[in-house]
Amino acid sequence: MNMPTQNSGQADTADQAADAGAKDAVVAARGLSKTFADGTVVALEGASFDIAPGSFVSLVGPSGCGKSTLLRLIAGLIDKSSGHLKVHGKPVDAPRTDVGMMFQRATLLEWRTAIENVLLPTEIKRSLTKEDRRNAAELLRMVGLHDFRFSFPTQLSGGMQQRVALARLLQTGADVLLLDEPFGALDEFTRERLNVELMRIVAEVGATTLFVTHNIAEAIFLADQVFVMTPRPGRIASIVEVPFERPRSPSLQTSPEFNEVVAEVRDILGEDH
């Protein structure tokens, strides 16, 4: 299901001169900045980082610190103002199919059944085959919704709708997954269960994941690295390495080591958190 990984350092001249980041980085940014049109809001300033293949990165920070902006830059949905940004060694200048995005709201099409929603990304690329339908059904099984594949979104709970959106994200075949507070609108119980499932699934498909959240514990629990961001201007204040072994169980969150990392992140964020 994964796209073949492209070699870095091909077919780009301007960006090659600049530091392109670590050789094997899936996402590499140097001095990446975004100022919105009116010129007053610096949504993101001087972000530099490398994201290794298959790693899970959480983005935490208060509202308005540029988390969504960073994701939308990587997805190619908006243009950067300055700096360098490469995905799979290629500069990002338009939406691309090896990067997939998931939002806080499920954004399902309510006139399509669950499986038809999952098939949408493929339908946009080419005409559907039997194999695609089988694949989509398999993905729905993976997120625990095989029995609901012919239900419409309005017949599903909020948590189930987000599972369908996750299956749709996987159906794109993208190996860079951008999740913008995907379970932020759900109750805590459902959110925790979906987080654990998400960890399992992205490990299974071997995707590189960027996950936005407001919740510090959640960010640490899921990630290999936590990008701690601060607002005005939006910056990555620090990148915190998370040392815990995988697979992780929810009980990890009560351990003293875990709480040390929580304290470290909280410290960087300062008073507001």
Binding site: L77, M101, T107
Partner: peptide, 19 residues
């Protein structure tokens, strides 16, 4: 957000309209 979804999936103008 749905528009953004369709853009990220690389939909053409016609697909955006029809789907």
């Amino acid at each position: 957000q749905r528009l953004e979804l369709f853009r990220s999936l690389g939909a053409s103008k016609l697909q955006l309209m029809r789907k």
